[in-house]
Amino acid sequence: MKHILVIDDAATVRMYHRNILETAGYRVDEAINGIEALEKALVKPYDLYIVDVNMPKLDGYGFLKEFRRQEDLSQTPAIMVTTEAGANDRALGYAAGANLYLTKPIKPHELLSYTRLLLGDLA
């Protein structure tokens, strides 16, 4: 079973993502900021990271940047999910290391479809 880390400071968003992904048969862990996410990822790498931008302590950009420097983790795809929808923000997200930049709110089927694509799973 593929294992996904959802990183968001909002518990509601984490639950939302978790519900969608678990229903589709993925295993989901949660982290409330970039620091916790790094810690969890370093202990046990995940198959996909879904990252919010604006978080306390270490934001999504910071997380991705640091994450991409970790030899063991760096090849894993990451989706950045945020309410910031400007072209600048997207470029920032890509520069930091995101493989996909999505704008909230994401519909359940959208999230699932992208997750499957990045993980190479057939529906």
Binding site: S74, Q75, P77, A78, N99, L117, G120
Partner: peptide
């Protein structure tokens, strides 16, 4: 290397899906 690998793995996933 990680950046490049992650892009490659994303592409592989997509194509496979």
């Amino acid at each position: 290397a990680g950046r490049l690998k992650s892009i490659a793995s994303t592409l592989m996933g997509c194509y496979r899906a």
